[in-house]
Design a binder for these strands. Structure first.
Length: 439
RNA sequence: GGUGGGAUGGCAGAGCGGUUGAAUGCACCAGUCUUGAAAACUGGCUUAGGUUAAUAGCCUAACUAGGGUUCGAAUCCCUAUCCCACCGCCA
């Protein structure tokens, strides 16, 4: 759980504290791209206190250790001479109290320092453009051409309802809003998409499939950065152990190597899991259909890579996600997120957005990020460098893809005038040759 | 859910409350020997934090985790987690 001593260093530092001490101005400058205002004066003041107090605490501790070590001998001598050993103990007691006082003072400052440092997001990569929100994201490329329809296109909600295979009302009855229930061909199509994505990543992109828990502990959520800042986005179990439903496979998969030194890099994992998100704070947004659900399926790619290779690996991983859309022949575009839209832990993120004819625009279907050593530092996930020394590795991940949204995109882009849906070529072998979803 | 037994360095495995960061073996690295290799011998071999120009020294911490007793804890006490065995229940 912890780096080093419980007294002197708290867990979950994120930005390298050494970097803050050596290059504070530069860090603050870089964080402006992310629209984060770093409290430099506050940091410097706390850091100065920390340094003084830590040196003090360690020196008292040193004295105490030396005294304790000599105690055995001193007591023996005292007893041999028939002297009282109480004064000897008293001095030890005094040292203990001094030490405890010094530790307490240090801990108080360290706590404030930790709080400050832990609230600092990851630094953005120099190539990340400044900007406030998604409107400032930069389109890098588009692929495919949105179809022209000579009839009025329906959205997936109407298509699904007309097919009698997608039912939000019954899902609401069973559970509540933001859930869906499917049946028949649509349910099969949904499953086939999952299977297709997994097969592609495993057999064409070199990923190893992993099966992981869908319920995780706090430490894992800290490791990937969902906690402590984003607790309200999670479903927490009413359980004294304090467990949570996973909001993404990223959490269990990335944490596979928490507190470990891995032998060989890179490691490429792909996992299919359900994802659970409370969507607190998104009331009224995307309430129609299955764009934003409390429960959805996702195929997630996670890579553990050498620090020198993470940027190349990210580009490659984006390509893996795009390949799925290309094989499904779904038009999309790839954008680079601006600083203001970047997630807390991410150094750089590419979003892939699929074309939705009903909305006449592109909507996010995958998000691919490089976290640098940010998550690795929280997780203590390391590898052995060329000198054989443990060093933080880099983590990257990306959806490949969000299955629910992919289904929706397939429905809308493959719809026919009669309301039936053509099954994309690549999915047919997985659906026993079925070519059309019909009522 | 019940009862018992465990958790020590990469692995195996010692460890009376006081030079134990931790015996020993294996593995690993370097050297000697050898034409080369093996064997044998010699030496090295955990990690984190702080200090520092330093991956040099020095200091602090760590024997699953958290708390307690003590001048002093791997060693004693409490709690949690995980593992093993048996019983009960069960997809």
């Amino acid at each position: 759980m912890r780096f080093g001593s419980p007294d002197y260093c708290k867990e979950y530092n994120m930005i390298d504290p050494k970097l803050l001490r050596s290059d504070l101005e530069s860090v603050a400058e870089q964080l402006k791209v992310k629209r984060f205002d770093l409290d430099c004066d506050g940091f410097l003041a706390l850091e100065a206190q920390r340094k003084t107090l830590q040196l003090e605490a360690e020196s008292v501790q040193q004295e105490r250790n030396a005294y304790s070590k000599s105690m055995g001998k001193l007591m023996g001598e005292a007893k041999a001479k028939g002297e009282d050993i109480e004064p000897l103990k008293l001095k030890g007691e005094q040292l203990k109290n001094d030490s405890a006082a010094a530790d307490t003072a240090l801990a108080a400052v360290q706590e404030q320092l930790d709080e400050l440092v832990q609230g600092i997001p990851n630094l953005p990569h120099p190539s990340v453009p400044a900007g406030n929100d998604e409107d400032d994201n930069v389109e890098l490329r588009t692929w495919g051409t949105p179809s022209k329809w000579d009839f009025a296109v329906k959205d997936h909600v109407d298509l699904g309802a007309d097919l009698g295979q997608l039912d939000f009302d019954r899902a609401a009855k069973i559970t509540g809003s933001r859930f869906s229930q499917m049946r028949g061909g649509l349910a099969s199509l949904h499953r086939a998409l999952t299977q297709f994505m997994l097969n592609t990543h495993i057999h064409e992109h070199g990923y190893e499939e992993v099966y992981v828990p869908y319920i995780v502990n706090r430490e894992s959520l800290f490791g990937t950065g969902q906690l402590p800042k984003f607790e309200e986005d999670l479903f927490k179990l009413e359980d004294e152990r304090g467990l949570y439903l996973i909001p993404t496979a990223e959490v269990p998969v990335t944490n596979i190597y928490r507190n470990e030194i891995v032998e060989e890099l890179p490691i490429k994992f792909v996992a299919h899991t359900p994802c659970f998100r409370s969507e607190a704070g998104s009331y009224g947004r995307d309430t129609r259909g299955m764009i934003r659900q409390h429960q959805f399926e996702k195929v997630e790619m996670v890579q553990f890579v050498h620090p020198d290779k993470s940027w190349d690996a990210l580009d490659e991983l984006v390509g893996h996600a795009e390949a799925i859309l290309q094989k499904l022949n779904l038009p999309y575009r790839t954008v680079m997120l601006c600083g203001g839209d970047l997630g807390f832990s991410s150094a750089k993120t590419y979003d892939i957005e699929v074309w939705l004819p009903s909305q006449d625009k592109y909507r996010e279907i995958s998000s691919c990020s490089n976290f640098g050593d940010f998550q690795a530092r929280r997780m203590k996930a390391r590898y052995r460098n060329e000198q054989g020394k443990p060093e933080l590795l880099h983590t990257i991940n990306g959806s490949g893809l969000a299955v629910g949204r992919t289904l929706l995109a397939v429905m809308e882009n493959y719809q026919r005038e009669d309301g039936s849906i053509e099954v994309p070529e690549v999915l047919r072998p997985l659906m026993n040759g079925v070519t059309t979803i019909q009522p």
